[in-house]
Amino acid sequence: MIEFLLHPGSGVSPYLQIVQQVRQALRLGLLREGDRLPTIKTVVAQLAINPNTVLKAYRELEHEGLVAPRPGAGTFVLRTLADDTVTAHDPLRADLRAWLDQAWQAGLDDDSIEALFWTTFRVARREAGSKEDVA
């Protein structure tokens, strides 16, 4: 069973945060086929959010073919998003960890590290995108 977290200042709507967290759990193998998602009542009580928000998130996941409701029993995972890239996670995590150590040693604080990561990520993403356009 997974637990959801909401980041109020993130600018991402609560329903989308739930969708993203389920997708992420499916990608990382934290949720597998046949697993049950927390009931709407549980999520609502834990996060103090509107039941319609959770319902909307679960419908979206259902629409994507990732989960399906079973009447009276709950909402269950139909397929995972974990693919062959999962095997690459461990070495990549180790690299990232080593990079983080370097950044701390160089005296960067957490905010600077995050800012550096995201700006680099966005630039790389844009460059990769424009290459695809040319090809």
Binding site: I40, K41, V44, A45, Q46, L47, A48, I49, N50, P51
Partner: peptide, 12 residues
């Protein structure tokens, strides 16, 4: 927070 969570649970 506890009150709002109870309220939402009841609404659900």
């Amino acid at each position: 927070r506890e009150f709002l969570s109870g309220l939402m649970e009841s609404a659900a």
